[in-house]
Amino acid sequence: MAKIVRRDFMLTGTALAGLAALAGCSGEGQATQNNSEDFDALAALIVVLFPHKDINQSVYEEVAELARAQLSVREGWVRLRQEGRAALNAAAGAPWESLEMGARVKATEVISKTRFFETVYQAALFEFYSHPAVWALVGYPGSSAEQGGYLHRGFDDIDWLAEAEAAP
């Protein structure tokens, strides 16, 4: 298992679009031929990362596809993916996908400091919390200009402050 923790893709800054794609973009695009086994594993890993109860499996699959597109153009991805899969299986003591959810989480924890994990995590996070279905779940409506903004739609409708202020 890789011991070096590299937080290359950790953008602890802001939610900037495409920034994840800034780091290392070249080559290996051709090596991304669909390999359905990998694809399923990625979606399953994203379920472990962001286990919202009310998100449909198809959303995880879509996010996996978007993340894969991002990852596949990254230098060294194919090797990293292979190392990562091997590390996951080693941590699981069996093919990772064959495990129950709880055991998958435990094995994922074991590899959570690897560069593979960081890389997948950043790509998946970026796509997952930009997905309309996830926005709908958390209550974020996205674009508002076409509805005239919030000037007449509740920008200042908070109604519990007086009560909170009066509370001891």
């Binding site: 950790m10 953008l11 602890t12 800054g13 802001t14 939610a15 472990v48 990362l49 962001f50 286990p51 989480v105 959570s112 995590y121 996070l125 970026f126 919390y129 930009s130 996830v134 926005w135 958390v138 974020y140």
Partner: peptide, 14 residues
């Protein structure tokens, strides 16, 4: 949501 996940909770999962 993306900024919350990335900035405030950067690195957190599960």
């Amino acid at each position: 949501p993306l900024s919350v996940a990335r900035i405030a909770f950067g690195g957190k999962w599960g």
